[in-house]
Write a protein that binds this DNA or RNA. Structure first.
Length: 227
DNA sequence: GCGACAG
DNA sequence: ATCTTGTCGC
């Protein structure tokens, strides 16, 4: 990448302020045939970060492929700087994909971020791919509580502008925070997310990636025990 | 100074 | 995110 990967929040802010100007929030993509779900998990014991990317057929929401990359965790978790902790592993996983997806659905914020560059926007700019952020909780902004029925939603506002949508993805569950990541507008980000909802709180792309990331798998060969 | 704070 | 088993509610 052109810019060196920052090692401190201070340097990360410089990178964010530079990249935020490259984010496009207008629709700029063709037919979505393959949509990708991105999620990351950690192993605190081994200090490893594991990124998972699943490819689904957008029309049927069926998983077509999945890849995983494991890297040492090199950046702490600091609200507002999540992307610097997770993107390195995600980019490694991306290299393993059999085909390039038409859009990325990322577990986290898109432009609904203090400096407009949540992980979905950051990843979108770095890959050049259309991206949407689907977060399970709020980072910034305020909103009226959406209705209780699936599909009900309210705008997420921040500093006088709409930065995302708070969506009730399923009855009786906490709402999701949807925001454009790159090359997708507000209404389309919401619509694509809604089209990925089935019977669960999370849309299929992120739900399946999250499911895989939580699977307990040995990162190292299992040592033989005595006796 | 106090409270908030994606995963 | 992760640590953790059963359990209350729909």
């Amino acid at each position: 990448m052109a810019l060196a990967w920052p090692e401190t929040p201070k340097d990360a802010v410089i990178v964010q302020n530079e990249l935020r100007h490259r984010v496009r929030v207008e629709n700029d993509f063709g037919t979505i045939k393959i949509i990708a779900g991105v999620d990351v998990s950690y192993n605190l014991k081994t200090n490893l970060t594991r990124a998972f990317i699943v490819l689904l057929d957008f029309a049927t929401l069926q998983m077509q492929a999945s890849v995983r990359a494991v890297l040492p965790t090199a950046f702490p978790y600091i609200p507002g700087f999540l992307s610097f902790r997770e993107i390195p592993a995600i980019l490694e996983a991306m290299k393993l994909l059999p085909i390039s997806p038409d859009l990325l659905m990322v577990d986290g914020q898109g432009i609904a971020h203090p400096r407009g560059l949540g992980i979905a926007a950051h990843l979108g700019v770095l890959t050049g791919l259309p991206a949407i952020g689907v977060a399970k909780s709020r980072l910034v902004g305020w909103n009226k509580e959406p209705g209780t029925q699936k599909g009900d939603h309210t705008p997420l506002l921040h500093k006088g502008a709409r930065i995302g949508t708070v969506l009730r993805s399923k009855e009786k569950v906490k709402p999701l925070f949807i925001s454009p990541g790159h090359r997708v507008d507000q209404d389309t980000a919401l619509e694509i997310t809604r089209q990925c909802l089935t019977k669960y709180r999370l849309p299929e792309p992120t739900r399946l990636a999250d499911k895989l990331s939580k699977e307990k798998v040995a990162e190292k060969p299992i040592q033989a025990s005595l006796f």
